[in-house]
């Protein structure tokens, strides 16, 4: 159920139940209802389902989740000497 796509608010008009705005999904701009995210500002990300912003996307949490996943990678590399070697090589290349 419930296809929800993240997009960036680029325009806001109206207020209350008629608060609407334009949301940019990587080049696709769609008019959506912002009635359920009254606190949202231009530049914020939201998740849109059937033409409604259902929540403001917490960008800080998104980055934290990704950072956390990167840490798993670090741990896994420690467990795998081959991968650690490859990672070192990659870093060395990057330095050149």
């Amino acid at each position: 159920m419930c296809l929800g796509i993240p997009g960036k608010v680029i325009e806001i008009t109206g207020e209350g139940v008629t608060m609407t705005g334009k949301v940019d999904f990587d080049g696709i701009v769609k008019e959506v209802s912002l009635a359920y995210v009254p606190e949202i500002s231009i530049g914020d990300y939201t998740i849109v389902h059937v033409g409604f912003a259902i929540t403001q996307l917490d960008e800080k949490a998104a980055l934290e989740t990704l950072a956390h996943l990167q840490e798993i990678e670090a741990v896994a590399i420690e467990l795998d000497p081959g991968a650690a070697l490859a990672a070192e090589e990659a870093i060395a290349k990057g330095d050149e």
Partner: peptide, 20 residues
């Protein structure tokens, strides 16, 4: 797309699979 593609990263997915 931002906040979509990052969460499809095949390398991180493989790490998670290893972890699981």
């Amino acid at each position: 797309m931002k906040y979509l593609e990052e969460f499809r990263d095949p390398d991180l997915a493989r790490r998670l699979l290893d972890d699981i």
